[in-house]
Design a protein around this nucleic acid. Structure first.
Lengths: 202, 202
DNA sequence: AGAATATATTAACGGCGTTAACAAAAAATT
DNA sequence: AATTTTTTGTTAACGCCGTTAATATATTCT
């Protein structure tokens, strides 16, 4: 009926509030069953208010992705500072990604397996997104391994791809295959990491 | 306005016609943008007619999945008959899955990465679906390798999981990551197969 | 105080999946 | 051959959805 008595004094603060609610809703309901109206009800505002802070539904998802990749690249740089051995750094980085996926499968799915929010390759490269930054850091870690002579001479891009492929596969299977017992996922994950890193080393 | 002059004489025939149109529409438009109304328009019938042949939207998807798994398990048995070496059989089977995915990414996605149409593990096991059959054949092929002493003693289930994980990962990445150059996918695929099979052999 | 801007609302458009009510053709029964 | 029943199709409607337009009110600026 009446208008909200409490207004959003600080735009960014309220924007973040919406984003948090959206992330939760996206994860619990899934991308398909998310709706702007549900989100509106959750934050107790009308649906159209959301459009004052986000262009549309996909803009919300974009913000969630960027948030994730921001944290991820920070974490990668931390790992890099702590660990001295390049291959060990790579293992840690890879495990971090996989463990995040195993612990937060639906957020992982939301970020990596939903209608790409970053457009084509050209758009991705020029847009200077956190997603792009993260990829570059990951690639640098791989390059460090190659430069240190501890990894067979393959294009760093390909190696990054292989690792990401493995991680993506594990999480997808974990999510979509009902006959994929949860207890086994740990075993599969460990085996995957070992086989891949051993296969990649000189 | 008027009622259709040409009626569907043979139920199964018309059902298949709908299914073919649905598959095409699901693949071209994606699961998200598929709609019963579009399908209706495509086959030139009213939307509600579809409900005389399929329970609902997901029932259509289920039929498409079963169709695929039927073909897949047949193909696996063919490979098994031709090839004599167990590991070679496994390689062929694995490559068949991956190549199908690389050639038909959106159908692969539709079948493996959409809201599971097979329910929980218990439901999957008791329902006697083609999906279940396919999994069992795949597992038998792996078991043959183990029995022949050519593969390290690991649970066959785990090995199947690892291979499927790799395949799923490759296809997902191929679909969702704009920066995943198409030309590279072949290289990554070959490397994956080699590393995995070598790592699994005794 | 008054103008301008930011923030929020309701109403509406055109789409969706699905069900209900109904019509007509085909098949079965008498 | 006439009539009942079943199958196959239709239109209308319900309650969702994303998004835009028009509008009202609060806050901020001058």
């Amino acid at each position: 009926m009446g208008v909200k008595e409490k207004r959003a004094k600080y735009r960014e603060e309220f924007r973040q509030e919406i984003l948090d609610a959206a992330r939760e809703l996206f994860i619990t309901e899934g991308y398909e069953n998310f709706s702007m109206r549900k989100l509106a009800e959750k934050i107790d505002y009308s649906a159209t208010t959301i459009y004052l802070y986000f262009k549309n539904r996909d803009d919300l998802l974009f913000a969630i992705c960027e948030e994730f990749f921001g944290n991820f690249s920070t974490r990668l740089n931390q790992i890099r500072l702590v660990s001295r051995d390049p291959v060990e750094t790579l293992r840690q980085a890879f495990l971090y990604l996989m463990n995040f996926g195993l612990k937060n499968p639906y957020q992982y799915k939301l970020i990596f397996f939903t209608k790409s929010v970053y457009g084509s390759r050209e758009e991705l490269v020029k847009k200077e997104s956190m997603a792009r930054t993260t990829y570059l850091v990951f690639k640098e870690i791989v390059q460090d391994c190659i430069d240190a002579g501890q990894m067979r001479q393959t294009e760093a891009d390909v190696i990054v791809d292989i690792l990401v492929v493995a991680s993506h596969g594990l999480i997808t299977k974990n999510i979509y295959c009902a006959n994929f017992l949860k207890e086994r996922s740990g075993t599969v994950a460990r085996t995957l990491v070992d086989v891949l890193l051993r296969g990649l080393q000189k």
